[in-house]
């Protein structure tokens, strides 16, 4: 079934759209969670603890996300390579009318995001790059828990880390700008009123997500957040 889907360009696109939608939902949740950093250590540490306490369910969600990411990547890489062969020679002068920088850089943006996500997981989730982060602990309502707040602050104090983060999130913004409107179209939701409207909504959505996420490392570096650490 899945391999049949991947053989067809249209069905591949539908897979990309559905997995894209799941990832968009994840990004919304993740962004909201991260914004808790502005409410201080207790808020974000409670949120992190809450996630941990989900136990098996968390792993189901994580598994689902990984699966979605894999499908999203496999399908898009195949489509991108396929599309390159379908247009072996481009014009000496191009005269694009409706396509955008975002729509033409989906693959590059996607790959950048992928590399960032891998680093991001190694950095904050798995503790491979910075094993000391995993050992950070704090007392929350009498319980010793992982100190996510301090980890974020320490992490983003490094300008290289913040720089990479900002770059990747900018690409995420580009990716969302085209991706969100595009997924609706691929899933057959389109019309003379809806299509231009969702294009605008996508742009606003991408700017909001991008702005919210980028504000965190900037606030950390300016010591607006976690200045005491």
């Amino acid at each position: 079934m899945l391999s049949n889907f991947l053989k067809s360009t249209i069905l591949s696109k539908i897979l990309v759209a559905v997995t894209g939608l799941l990832l968009v939902l994840f990004i919304v949740g993740h962004t909201l969670g991260n914004l808790l950093v502005y409410l201080g250590p207790n808020a974000i540490n409670t949120y992190a603890l809450g996630l941990k306490k989900l136990g098996a369910l968390l792993w189901v969600v994580r598994g689902g996300l990984i699966f979605a990411v894999l499908i999203h990547i496999i399908a898009t890489i195949r489509l991108t390579l396929y599309n390159k062969t379908a247009k072996p020679i481009n014009y000496t002068v191009t005269g694009y009318i409706t396509s955008t920088f975002s729509s033409r850089t989906m693959a590059i943006a996607g790959l950048t995001i992928l590399f960032f996500v891998i680093y991001h997981l190694l950095h904050f989730t798995l503790g491979v790059t910075n094993p000391e982060f995993m050992k950070l602990e704090t007392n929350l309502h009498g319980e010793n828990v992982h100190d996510v707040f301090t980890m974020m602050i320490t992490g983003f104090r490094n300008p290289l880390v913040s720089g990479f983060y900002i770059l990747a999130v900018s690409f995420l913004g580009l990716h969302l700008n085209h991706g969100v409107k595009s997924l609706f179209h691929t899933l057959g939701i389109a019309g003379p009123i809806f299509t231009p409207m969702i294009a605008k909504i996508s742009t606003v959505f991408a700017i909001v997500i991008c702005g919210a996420l980028i504000s965190i490392p900037i606030s950390v570096m300016l010591r607006i957040v976690g200045g005491a650490i």
Partner: peptide, 27 residues
């Protein structure tokens, strides 16, 4: 190739065929 929703086709179409037909084709 496959459609990645650039909509250049509709802009170039001398008869302004709408891309909404592509959305419908997918489903």
């Amino acid at each position: 190739g496959a459609c990645t929703n650039h909509f250049e086709c509709e802009a170039a179409c001398p008869k302004s065929i709408s891309v909404k037909f592509i959305a419908k084709l997918n489903t």
